[in-house]
Deep mutational scan, measured.
Amino acid sequence: MQIFVKTLTGKTITLEVEPSDTIENVKAKIQDKEGIPPDQQRLIFNGKQLEDGRTLSDYNIQKDSTLHLVLR
């Protein structure tokens, strides 16, 4: 499925993911596309910070959902 990740600069990254993917996996995909190390990434969905060990389906993230990427 496709999800979107919006950065603070207003750029939107499109990712191909599975609901069973962990947040860690998603961060690795963002690193592949953008070169941002996962330990600098914080992903936010519906105002909640997403934890590495959880999956997209844990957070009820579905296709065409938009996550927000904050760098630390």
Results as ranks from 00 to 15, higher is better:
Gln49Thr: 14
Arg42His: 15
Gln40Tyr: 02
Glu34Pro: 02
Leu56Ser: 01
Leu15Trp: 01
Ala28Pro: 04
Leu71Glu: 06
Gln41Leu: 06
Ile3Gly: 00
Asp21Tyr: 04
Gly35Phe: 11
Val17Leu: 07
Lys29Asp: 10
Lys48Arg: 07
Leu43Asp: 00
Ile23Gly: 15
Ile23Val: 14
Gly10Met: 13
Arg72Glu: 06
Thr66Trp: 12
Arg42Val: 13
Gln41Arg: 09
Lys33Gly: 05
Gln62Tyr: 12
Thr12Lys: 12
Ile13Arg: 11
Ser65Glu: 05
Asn60Phe: 03
Gly35Pro: 05
Ser65Phe: 15
Lys11Ile: 12
Val70Thr: 09
Gln2Val: 14
Ile36Ala: 09
Ile3Pro: 00
Lys48Val: 06
Asp39Thr: 05
Gly10Pro: 04
Ile30Glu: 00
Gln31Thr: 06
Ile30Gln: 00
Ser57His: 08
Gly35Arg: 13
Asp64Phe: 03
Val17Ala: 12
Gln2Tyr: 13
Val5Ala: 03
Leu43Ile: 09
Ser20Phe: 07
Asn60Leu: 04
Lys6Arg: 14
Gln49Phe: 04
Val70Gly: 04
Thr55Val: 06
Asp39Leu: 11
Met1Trp: 13
Arg54Glu: 13
Arg54Leu: 10
Asn60Arg: 06
Leu8Trp: 11
Glu51Arg: 13
Lys63Leu: 13
Asn46Ala: 11
Ser65Leu: 03
Pro37Asn: 07
Gln41Glu: 02
Pro38Asp: 03
Lys48Gly: 14
Leu15Val: 09
Leu15Arg: 00
Thr9Trp: 02
Asp58Phe: 12
Thr55Gln: 10
Ile23Arg: 01
Pro37Gln: 06
Ile23Tyr: 05
Leu8Asn: 13
Lys27Leu: 06
Phe4Tyr: 15
Ile30His: 00
Lys33Phe: 13
Leu50Thr: 12
Ile36Trp: 08
Ala28Thr: 12
Asn25Tyr: 15
Leu71Gln: 05
Ala28Val: 07
Lys6Met: 10
Ile44Arg: 04
Ile13Gly: 08
Asp64Ser: 11
Ser20Glu: 09
Gly53Pro: 10
Glu18Ser: 08
Pro37Trp: 12
Gly10Asp: 14
Glu51Tyr: 10
Asp52Met: 05
